[in-house]
């Protein structure tokens, strides 16, 4: 407790960003932070999803609960979600969850009048708020083939009429509120090749070593016939190369360590929020969570107890 600071300054380097996909490096932090970030992205970043369905007419083949469940799973664009209220702590509507601050209303009115089977899709959902609409998966090029998410199929004479209320929620409560499709991170591997030992190998042996890895991590330089690392991140921590090296009687030929403070994240979203936004929102949520445990100002005495950490938690 002699004033050692544990504060670190994590850095993010973005490698690739698409609408619903993002790959970035997170450096200079612990795995606890990386995992917290991952878990928050999956379960605690709020989105909007249909939560209450009032069915007026349903003569389709699927029953009411079934359709309601399917409606709930449709991702809705949720840029507004962070600024919305949870309907359980909404003051404007006594928590019955039907006001503009905490809910969005949807209508679906479809009837099949032709002999052809009619697909009821997420595009048939009419929203009361133009910012909260079902995610559009069509790439804008061919709308004919991409018709949205199918809810139910109707045959001639069948009808579906309903009102749905979408609310803010988090993935912890129900997976339908999870904005993430997949969020993964890996430790960045550090691969050392012992050049001296490598020299003692024949070309065939080198090739064998290269081929022993199930993923394409190593290659042989076509010019100087040296084993080189082509893609360290392709390594899946499978130890196959290490086992091979040992089997060849050359332990230590290749050494692989996980860099414990560098992480490579892959984030894919459902489209409810942009991938980049998801990361920002997750950081925001993480900050809010930390705020919740942050010691209040009147417990400065705790400084004695926590030292530097106490100040840190107060935002010092």
């Amino acid at each position: 407790m002699d004033g050692v600071s544990y504060q670190r300054f994590p850095r993010i380097k973005i490698r690739e960003v698409k609408h619903d996909y993002m790959k970035f490096e997170l450096r200079d932090t612990d795995s606890s932070i990386a995992n917290a970030l991952r878990r928050i992205m999956i379960a605690e970043v709020p989105t909007i999803a249909i939560d209450l369905v009032e069915i007026e007419v349903n003569s389709s083949v699927l029953n009411d609960e079934f359709i309601s469940h399917r409606l709930g799973l449709i991702p809705l664009t949720s840029e507004r979600a962070m600024s919305m209220r949870f309907s359980r702590d909404c003051d404007a509507c006594d928590g019955d969850g039907q006001c503009e601050y905490c809910s969005v209303e949807f209508y679906l009115r479809v009837k099949c009048l032709s002999d052809q089977t009619l697909d009821v899709t997420s595009k048939d959902l009419l929203s009361s708020d133009h910012t909260v609409v079902p995610v559009d998966y069509s790439d804008g090029l061919d709308n004919a083939t991409n018709k949205g998410i199918i809810i139910v199929k109707l045959r001639r004479g069948q009808e579906l009429r309903l009102r749905a209320i979408a609310r803010k929620g988090i993935g912890k409560d129900h997976a339908k509120w999870s904005p993430a499709a997949t969020v993964t991170f890996m430790y960045e591997p550090e691969i050392y090749i012992n050049e001296d030992m490598m020299e003692s190998l024949t070309l065939e042996e080198k090739q064998e070593l290269v081929d022993s890895s199930p993923t394409k991590v190593f290659a042989i330089d076509p010019e100087n016939k040296q084993v080189i690392v082509v893609d360290p991140e392709a390594y899946t921590y499978d130890d196959e190369v290490l086992k091979k090296a040992e089997a060849m009687g050359k332990p230590g030929l290749v050494e692989i360590h996980a860099k414990e403070d560098s992480f490579i994240f892959t984030v894919e979203t459902t489209g409810a929020v942009k991938a980049s936004q998801l990361v920002l929102n997750a950081i925001e949520v993480l900050k809010q969570k930390l705020d919740a445990v942050r010691l209040s100002d009147d417990t400065v005495e705790a400084d004695d107890q926590f030292g530097e950490l106490g100040a840190h938690m107060r935002g010092g």
């Binding site: 029953n63 079934f66 469940h69 799973l73 993935g171 997976a175 339908k176 999870s178």
Partner: peptide, 13 residues
């Protein structure tokens, strides 16, 4: 996994 149950795994009528 709860998420899979949320998404409809193993539901029966």
């Amino acid at each position: 996994n709860k998420s899979s149950l949320d998404r409809g795994f193993g539901r029966c009528i």
